[in-house]
Design a binder for these strands. Structure first.
Lengths: 214, 214
DNA sequence: TTGATTTTCTAATTCAGATTAGATTATTTG
DNA sequence: CAAATAATCTAATCTGAATTAGAAAATCAA
């Protein structure tokens, strides 16, 4: 808690020593919460995973709730950043469809790959106390705006048949992707292969019944 | 607890007095767990919703865990029963596609309509203690077999392009449907309209890029 | 009505785990 | 090296909610 006296705002580089510990705690918390849920994960579990004692967590976070909120903050932030980066990295003439595809692939990879934090965040939203949930939903709404834009662009480009409600489309895609956090087990299929199938069934499903292929 | 001495097995009609209370408790529990999650819902909340005191619950259920397990039992059971009934009720020459459509519609309706129990069950799976989760997942696996069959039939009938992994397809559909429990708010769109959109995007997405329409 | 059985209530008890306080150790800085 | 600060540990304390026990009330059977 005793945050150092210097300015805090936008100083990402000078990593204080404790920032590393803080990160380790969040990593451990992500794993614990993903595996055990909000109620199942004990602070002592989380602390153990970060190589410390339960009481020591309070030097870094005011409370269990503050910890989980910080975790969810970072979870949404990281996912959105990754998706934006993937879209930005597309070669020059990227169609609405290309961008949507990139978003779907990247979101799924965030959910399914190493990172416990993205899937923990999703799972936690409906487990945490209401005030925390409210704020988390607010942040997710912001992330949702990105998807709304992607889908609106795709529809304007004629990639999505106009009789579908875009909210339903968006939520269905998010559902299909986020659900993977629950069933994915490494080994059988690669995340990339799964992403490819979801992209295929989603994108080609979004188009009208039949008009020739692009 | 003191279950009456008579046989228990397959006697659905002679409803003892306490069966009504038991049902009221499960209803209240479904609502409470859906709204507050496994940790958030207190036994006193559940009891209040059923018009009784927390301690009285123990006459009907051995423990909080027994209650939640009974709830999830019923949740899967009801959903599967509804889906099977909908399929059985289809007019005579029902194609694989028709049956899949019926399943999707019905599953969504179970999630989204009045019944808190279906959505509570889904939400609870990853919140409950491991032993309960294991058993619940087992029951869901059985329900999943029904879907596996539906999808295999559809693929055999040429309704699903053969390059897609059917497990991924199945899980994506379940994800899209189950996610609705989290975002659906009555008022804006009818459940039927939502179901129609999901059916449209799912089924037409499952077909190969283009071969004419059925 | 009366006794037996079922159901519910009230008022502890218990317990696990979050939180706190102060001592202790590490780390940095001059 | 020594003082100051940062980080962690240990050992309570606190809390809230599940659970239990036994007393009451309701229901039922005769």
């Amino acid at each position: 808690m005793k945050q150092p006296s210097s300015a805090r705002a936008a100083t990402p580089e000078p990593q204080r020593k404790s920032d590393i510990t803080r990160q380790a705690i969040l990593d451990s918390a992500a794993r614990a919460f993903r595996l055990s849920g909000y109620s199942g994960a004990r602070l002592s579990d989380i602390a153990a995973g970060a190589g410390m004692q339960a009481g020591s967590l309070y030097y870094h976070f005011d409370s269990r709730e503050a910890l989980v909120e910080a975790l969810m903050d970072r979870g949404v932030e990281q996912t959105e950043a990754a998706v934006r980066a993937a879209i930005a990295a597309l070669p020059a003439p990227a169609s609405a469809r290309d961008r949507l595809r990139a978003a779907i692939e990247t979101h799924l990879l965030m959910i399914v790959q190493q990172e416990d934090i993205a899937s923990a965040t999703i799972k936690l939203i409906w487990q945490v106390p209401q005030p925390i949930r409210e704020r988390a939903l607010g942040r997710q709404r912001a992330y949702g705006a990105l998807w709304r834009k992607l889908l609106a662009d795709a529809r304007d480009a004629g990639e999505i048949r106009s009789d579908l409600d875009l909210s339903v489309v968006r939520m269905s895609i998010m559902g299909a992707l986020n659900w993977a956090a629950d069933w994915y087990k490494p080994g059988k299929m690669t995340p990339e292969a799964i992403a490819a199938d979801i992209v295929a069934m989603t994108l080609e499903g979004l188009r009208g019944p039949c008009k020739g292929e692009g």
